[in-house]
Write a protein that binds this DNA or RNA. Structure first.
Lengths: 357, 357
DNA sequence: TTGTATGCGTTATCAA
DNA sequence: TTGATAACGCATACAA
């Protein structure tokens, strides 16, 4: 031990006592472990990080010492020294109502967590519900609290996405707002899915098909509308499209009323989400229309809503958990220095035909 | 400047370059700001932390310097030096299905975030979906990543709760598992709410009242059953109670079928959650029972489910967002060294009478 | 395989 | 009000 050591520790201990305002137990450090095991701090650190070059005798002594002094690593110190945290952030930037109701967000979250867990990364989920949150989260990210970040439900002109670009933090978005082109993304092909489901609606003989669109400021909403339009082709009639800000049941109620008013003979409806479809179905019922007899209707998501509709809702299954997993995989590559070969990944969807169309 | 400074920074720069594996921009430190503004690091730090004793001239120079060199604080270093992070964890420990469906969790999350945001604390939400997660989260907490923690949906014998006790980390639980008595909690009075709603069911003339209980391993589930039992009093018949692990619609379906089989004359049902009630209603319908004519039914939560039932569901409103806010407030006190005067806080609930009973 | 020494970027103490 | 400097606890390059 160098002569300076004891002095060092002694003064440290004193200050620690002074700072110790309450009853939090004092925590052992690598110093204590090294002393106890009669080895150097370097050796302890190497063992802790699973590196080679630790003899069995040293290992035993250290493990014993760790147990004896009750050592646990201090992450802040580790982060500072190693310049990485083994944590990644997941940012959910949504108004409250959406966060609570969107059936996909939870699944994305779980998928991400699962994948990160496999590589022993910690997911920290950051919620933005106000401008103040937004600024604080930006600080948090800039501060090096996480090694990378996944943005769920990014929107156009998202200040956080822009901040991340400036910081140079590895990032992946779920969905791809058009104004952050450099960040890799994972998503589904909303356009094709919408086009295909609408086509099947036509193939089953529907002729006056409307759409209740939503969230046109997001890629998901805009692409679903574009797909619908493409499937309808030349006969497209903009009077048969209504749009609202949110993917909610209320949107379905308002939208369906509007469509019925504009076109009483409507015989098919593509709702931009299952929740919207559920609202629309209730309105159609009250208006005396039978489903799928008079009107065929399809939704999007294959969420809980689809199972609770009467009749059961035909819809598009979106692999939300896989989106999360995939986003996590890409981010891990990024964090480890691998550049992804492609900037965007689209996962396949599947049409689930049930009873409503 | 001391003579040692330039040497120090020069060698630092070299190492930084060596480590800089990719294109992450080099970041300015307090050193750079201090140099640029011709003041000491101490002064810069004081300004950054909003302390007194910074002259206007110094302030101006520093703010200019910060903008010029593009300084942002390094949180890891700040955390290490200050021994606190200004972040608190919120732990959700639930199987996937519950996390996705429980209507309260999201609201608790948002309420917590809102309150913490007011004090500029960052909420980091930690999800436990496996034993591996559990161990990693424990490390994360022990590592000093957060100043405190809120546990949502704590259960009996929760390893995380036990770990937190050992660490001595300030903590609050939402709900109060009986085996972690020392941790303050916030919750609702499930017992009284359940008793009152059941009593009203009786007061409106129901005589054969059953209950579909769930999650008896949690205080919420157990207390709701106890309240029901108390309201029924002497006439309690355990044949009229069924219980299942989850607060889910499937529980309602299975539970109602069982109750109908046991007691065809049943004329009232207390479902332990709205989702359960929704399932039960569907079964009653199919069995040809009218609601509330033949059978009155009430739920718990006042969630989305309640609004989608036909008829609209009478239920108990649980102030989930307030639970989150309150938990956050208590935790902030704890983190700042204030001991709470009481170990438990119960928030009021409200019975919402609609059409189902 | 192990030990030593230095750096990581702050905060906080104390003297000035 | 400011400056100088010692912690904070760990990782790591390099010497041994």
């Amino acid at each position: 031990m160098a002569v300076v050591e004891p002095v060092n520790r002694a003064s440290t201990a004193k200050i620690a006592v002074m700072r110790q305002s309450d009853d939090r137990p004092k925590r052992a450090t690598i110093f204590d472990v090294a002393d106890e095991a009669k080895v150097s701090r370097g050796t302890v650190s190497r063992l802790l990080n699973g590196e080679r070059y630790v003899s069995d005798s040293a290992r035993e002594a250290i493990e014993l010492a760790i147990a004896r002094v009750g050592y646990v690593r201090n992450m802040a110190a580790r982060n500072l020294a190693s310049q990485r945290t083994r944590a990644v952030g997941l940012i959910v930037h949504e108004p409250h109502s959406v966060f609570l109701e969107d059936p996909n967000i939870g699944a994305i979250l779980l998928g991400t967590n699962e994948r990160l867990s496999e590589d022993d990364y910690q997911l920290v989920c950051l919620i933005i519900g106000s401008d103040r949150d937004s600024a604080r989260v930006a600080d948090f990210l800039r501060g090096g609290f996480v090694d990378g970040v996944i943005i769920v439900s990014a929107r156009e002109h998202d200040p956080i996405a822009l901040a991340i670009g400036q910081i140079g933090l590895p990032a992946v978005t779920v969905g791809h707002p058009s104004d952050v082109p450099k960040i890799p993304f994972v998503g589904i092909d909303n356009y094709t899915a919408a086009r295909d489901v609408t086509s099947r609606l036509r193939d089953t003989g529907r002729r006056r098909i409307g759409m209740i669109a939503a969230a046109l400021d997001r890629d998901s909403g805009a692409d679903r509308l574009a797909g619908f339009r493409s499937a309808i082709g030349d006969g497209f009639d903009e009077r048969l499209v209504v749009d609202f800000p949110l993917y909610s049941r209320e949107t379905g109620v308002a939208g369906m009323k509007e469509l019925l008013a504009r076109e009483p003979d409507i015989d098919g409806v593509f709702a931009a989400s299952d929740a919207i479809a559920a609202g629309a179905i209730d309105v159609l019922r009250q208006a005396g229309r039978s489903i799928p007899g008079d009107v065929g209707i399809v939704g999007f998501d294959d969420s809980e809503w689809a199972q609770r509709c009467d009749p059961l809702l035909s819809t598009i299954r979106q692999p939300a958990d896989l989106l999360g997993r995939q986003a996590a995989s890409i981010l891990l590559d990024l964090v480890n220095g691998t550049r992804p070969e492609q900037t965007g990944t689209l996962l396949p969807t599947e049409i689930v035909w049930r009873d409503s169309a």
